[in-house]
Design a binder for these strands. Structure first.
Length: 111
DNA sequence: TGATTGACAGCGT
DNA sequence: CACGCTGCCAATC
């Protein structure tokens, strides 16, 4: 059972206009220190089309460098269109960082 | 089975 | 404030 699957699932739960950092995503996936692992998993990204990776940003609020859908500019534009608050060329994590509901966390734990 | 990789995070300089 | 080094985890070769 690959944890990546759980990561993808969580990504699917992220509402429009909100983003999640790799660290937070990793934490939700059960890897408190596995931000890198998450990145690696997404890098392979066997389910690229069904995974909104553009809603995943780094802890600084910046997006991934080797983004696969068309580059950072594309991701940036898309986030902006979704309603994500941007500060310069970064994301305002204070306002656009998704706060996952507890029931969802319990659900993930149950998985 | 073991070693290396890779879309990161955090702290120090 | 910007840049660099180290630590971590899972997936892949």
């Amino acid at each position: 059972m690959f944890k990546s699957q759980l990561v993808y699932k969580i990504l699917g739960f992220i509402p429009k206009g909100k983003v999640l950092t790799y660290a937070r995503l990793a934490e939700l996936a059960g890897m408190p220190k596995g931000a890198r692992a998450v990145g690696n998993v997404l890098h392979k990204n066997p389910d690229a089309p069904r995974v909104p990776c553009h809603r995943v940003v780094a802890s600084d609020g910046r997006m991934g460098s080797n983004y696969a859908l068309g580059g950072p500019a594309e991701q940036f534009k898309r986030l902006k269109e979704e309603g994500v608050v941007m500060i310069g060329d970064k994301v305002d994590l204070e306002k656009s960082l998704w706060h996952p509901p507890e029931n969802l966390i319990l659900n993930l734990t149950n998985l």
